[in-house]
Design a protein around this nucleic acid. Structure first.
Lengths: 189, 189
DNA sequence: GTCTATATCGAGATAGAC
DNA sequence: GTCTATCTCGATATAGAC
């Protein structure tokens, strides 16, 4: 329990490296070099390489779970709920694209916390599926395959981390609105 | 230049392992064990671990390039071209989901062939962008942000490999058609 | 809080027998 | 075509001085 800021610095630097090469290909020496110290010094702040991955992924996963609860407890209609979920993804991906990369690509390298992560992830997917089914039932959405709709939306949202860093000074509301238009309204005239 | 089938066997087995853990986390000993032989024996068939990754990724990348040429040289309209591209992705992802995983997640571990891969990838993206712009200009598509449309479609298509293996006995035409409906027509009523 | 030194392990790859 | 034996390197992590 030394300085908490140094620990955060290490975690944030690690996330950047993980995004470029993936968890397995990043060494503690790489991380140390990026921090300007020696590898052994890292261990005064973090317990292990594995612990760094846990911090990054579990934090974001719980943030999504929390955001989903807010949406579910709201009295928004189906379209508005989907819009809120899109905005949730844009917001988190914009605030922490490196963490999103680790969550998407390196979760399988989690050890103790892997099952917990998978539980949160599955619950999250179920919740979106529920919203889509409700929308179809209430005739707010076209009667399309729930699986295909879920997959299409979620694939796009999960890939946001790849795309967002390229745009500087992103307007979260504008991108969320553009994405909603495309994902919900379609593209053909 | 020993038996060519043994080499293919190794490459296909490697692709499966790469899909589960990523290139960096798979060892030549893992691969050998999955093949039922010793690690040293692998080197009678392949030159290096890196060469395996190259085979997997470059083959698929060139397959996409070829498919795109066919679409571009056709006299299809914008919507039909997009439908053809969707079908191209479904078809390749269905035939080789493991290879698609490597292409999506492990291309950064390519060495000599990395730049070549990135060139093919960028060219492919430019071609889709061209088709979308053309569609907007000809009033076949809504006047939406080209970037958002491109990103949304491509993110979904690039994620197909995650989703397709779960469905057994996939009907390529049916999924392509369902996906086209959602991606092009939208979901709201 | 960072260092040097080091322990231990497993990685990719080669040599040469069978 | 596969094996055993081995080389060399770099990985995570710890001990203990400053």
């Amino acid at each position: 329990m030394t300085t908490e800021t140094r620990k955060s610095e290490i975690i944030n630097t690690a996330a950047k490296l993980f995004k470029h090469k993936g968890y397995s290909a990043v060494t503690m020496r790489d991380l140390a070099q990026a921090m300007g110290i020696k590898a052994a010094s890292l261990y005064n702040h973090i317990e292990s390489k594995q612990a760094i991955l846990e911090y990054i992924i579990i934090n974001i996963a719980e943030e999504f779970t929390l955001g989903m609860q807010t949406v579910l407890n709201s009295d928004l209609n189906t379209i508005q709920k989907l819009e809120a979920i899109i905005k949730l993804h844009v917001s988190i991906a914009n605030q922490n694209p490196e963490g999103m990369a680790a969550l998407n690509n390196d979760w399988m390298h989690l050890e103790e916390r892997r099952d917990y992560y998978l539980e949160l992830r599955q619950q999250y997917e179920s919740n979106i599926r529920f919203i889509i089914d409700e929308g179809i039932a209430k005739n707010n959405l076209k009667n399309l395959s729930t699986d295909v709709v879920l997959f299409s939306i979620l694939s796009t949202l999960r890939s946001l981390y790849l795309w967002i860093p390229k745009k500087d000074q992103l307007d979260v509301n504008e991108l969320s609105s553009d994405l909603s238009e495309v994902l919900i309204g379609g593209i053909n005239k």
